[in-house]
Write a protein that binds this DNA or RNA. Structure first.
Length: 274
DNA sequence: AAGAGCCCCAACCGCTGTACG
DNA sequence: TCGTACAGCGGTTGGGGCTCT
């Protein structure tokens, strides 16, 4: 069947996300969730297609994402899981909390595949050696592409338990926060809006400094009054309807969001239809 | 110091699966 | 049952940073 393009290309921005766009997207999702990705950019006032917003959120902006280099244990887990699952990156990501399918895919193609290739083994080993000749030390993930924020590389023992952590096999790590995803699975319950509290987010990292930048980013973003955004939020009935009819939004979810909105104090003005 | 080449990764593209009317 | 819309997944790539020469 003829599929319409994911979005109207006309007038929609492509390429790297700016910090401003990130903030708008984060603020919108914090406030309204993402019941409908296609409608989200319009509601948030972003000149992006829903697909782009979704990818940006899932691969970069979700607060439960673990940034930085992969530990040896994680790499071993990826190799093992790849042997079992093949190129089902989302399934692999589901077993590596905090890692996205895109990230795992990148690591596989850039490191692990070569490592498993016997012809590259020697070369790869040389690269692994700290003082080995020719190995390019991984740069400390400097911001790229329009203000991308990356945490400094963690030490190799960051997530020894990651590979064995129990994670729902049904949903990947890319499942949304509104679907009681890995955030909950990692025990960060009780935080408002389904986000991990900053304390839990940072304290879950063995090295608190690892997320220093992200913490400041989230602190800034979470504390930022929404009115400070240039782009007006447009909570509309369509979104509420989408959330209400969403297959993943049960009555409890609706009650939860309603409570959140009520507590925010502006539900009357913002969402009169709920 | 400067240029070349390599490496990495964020983001795009196109396809599939699923829900719904 | 069919057609459409949407979310999600995996493959691919553009381009910036880093290292080497």
């Amino acid at each position: 069947m003829g599929r319409a393009p994911c979005c109207e290309k006309m007038g929609l921005k492509k390429g790297p996300w700016t910090p401003e766009e990130d903030k708008v997207l984060v603020a919108h999702i914090q406030r309204f969730g993402h019941g409908n990705w296609r409608a989200l950019p319009k509601q948030a006032g972003l000149l992006r297609c829903g697909k782009s917003c979704r990818l940006r959120w899932i691969n970069y902006l979700r607060p439960d994402i673990k940034r930085g280099n992969f530990s040896k244990e994680e790499e071993d887990a990826i190799i093992r899981l790849h042997q079992q699952l093949g190129n089902r990156w989302s399934a692999i990501a589901a077993r590596l909390p905090g890692r996205t399918d895109n990230e795992i895919k990148n690591v596989w193609h850039t490191h692990l595949k070569k490592r498993l290739d016997p012809t590259n083994e020697i070369k790869e080993e040389a690269r692994e050696a700290p003082t080995g000749g020719g190995k390019k030390q991984r740069r400390p993930a400097a911001p790229k592409r329009g203000g991308a924020r990356r945490a400094p590389p963690p030490d190799a023992a960051t997530e020894a338990s990651a590979a064995t952590a129990p994670v729902s096999p049904e949903r990947s790590a890319s499942s949304s926060v509104t679907e009681s995803s890995s955030v909950t699975e990692q025990g960060n319950t009780g935080s408002s809006l389904g986000f991990p509290k900053e304390e839990s987010f940072t304290s879950s990292a063995p090295d608190a400094e690892e997320f220093q930048f992200d913490e400041s980013f989230w602190s800034e973003t979470l504390s930022m009054p929404l009115e400070s955004f240039d782009v007006p939020m447009e909570p509309c009935d369509a979104f509420g309807a989408a959330a209400a009819t969403s297959s993943s939004a049960g009555a409890d979810d609706m009650d939860y969001w309603l409570r959140v909105f009520m507590e925010s104090g502006d539900v009357q003005q913002e969402l009169p239809q709920i």
